[in-house]
Amino acid sequence: MRTIAMIAVLLGTSPLAAQDFSEGSEARSWNLYAEQPARFEARVVDMLCAVTGDCPEDCGGGQRQIGLLRSVDDVLVYPNKNAQPVFSGAAVDLLPFCGADVEVDGLMLDDPDIGARNIYLVQRIRRLDGDEWINAQSWTENWAAQNPDASGEGPWFRRDPRVAAEIEAHGYLGLGLDVDAAFIADWF
């Protein structure tokens, strides 16, 4: 049995898939249905590279999603979210660590009923060869630097030029401005 279990672990089909990585985690709860605190060591990888072998040197230079290849079991964890509650992903925060071995802390989502396996919200990162934890909350600062003409009041998603262009062209519902107008008249 022990041999079979070891093989299963090595093949990534084991109970490790549901392993508890909460030890030592200081992750803040988001009160999500399937969240579990998870702190683990991993290598930072380009997702497209890890899955298909299409591997530029710089993990895509900010264009691509970034993943975490967990050290203990070689499971590819997919960080969908950074620590900011503003509709922001995790790639910006992880890109500076491309190819590095790190430790991360955050929330793992495991809800197989809707297909969520190894989905991660990363809250902080540190290099294994360093002591300093870095909070995963650089997305808005990066957005502001890339959109200097979109400064002003309100959150980024109200000021983003690309989002604004889509809404201006197709409405908030995406069904055209006439449908929007009728809906808004009834909604408010």
């Binding site: 992903g89 980024w156 998603f157 983003d160 809404i167 908030y172």
Partner: peptide, 11 residues
Amino acid sequence: TCALWCSAGGI
């Protein structure tokens, strides 16, 4: 609209 925000936000 939220899907636009999340897509533009890199999710």
